[in-house]
Every structure is written in C-alpha cells, then in structure tokens.
C-alpha cells in the first residue's frame, strides 16, 4: 500500500495514500475531541473534512482551547 508522510502538529506521521481528513482524525484519536483543523496554514471547516484527501507533505495543525489572556 502506498503511504504518504505528513506533519501533524510539527511531528512526522504516515498515512495510507488517499486518506480523507475524517479518517485521519479518527486514526489519530481526535474524532470526538473539541478541536479545529488547519492544513498547510489554511482553516478547514468541519463540513469539509470528508472531502479533504490528505497529500504527501501536508502540514496539519490541530488546536484545542487553552487558557489565554
């Protein structure tokens, strides 16, 4: 099976080629978490997860609420 390498929160991760973001979030245990996602610095809304197929070298940022001033 072909694999791609991406950066998830600045760490290298591998996924099967052709994986949609929905499945990637599931595999990374984010599926039921309160998070928001950007790919290559662009916001990806929840409604677009299923249609967003991840590519080799994609940079994924996944963020959650923290205390802030």
């Amino acid at each position: 099976m072909n694999e791609i390498t991406l950066r998830l929160n600045d760490e290298a991760v591998r996924l099967p080629a052709g994986t949609p973001l929905t499945d990637a979030l599931q595999a990374w245990h984010y599926a039921d978490r309160r998070v928001a996602v950007a790919v290559n610095g662009e916001f990806v809304p929840r409604s677009a997860y299923a249609g967003r197929v991840l590519q080799d070298d994609d940079r994924i940022d996944i963020v959650a609420p923290v205390g802030g001033g």
């Binding site: 929160n9 984010y30 928001a36």
Partner: peptide, 22 residues
C-alpha cells in the same frame, strides 16, 4: 473572558475540564 487555542495532542486530556468551567 478571553481564551486561546493551542496545538493539542490526543493524549492531552485537561482541556475538557477547563472548557466546562468556562
């Protein structure tokens, strides 16, 4: 109240209590 967003790894589980309080 103000709050922020930071990278979250899936093992980090402290966010939910914080969120609930807010």
């Amino acid at each position: 109240v103000t709050l922020g967003l930071r990278r979250q790894n899936p093992a980090g589980g402290d966010g939910e209590a914080f969120w609930q309080i807010l």
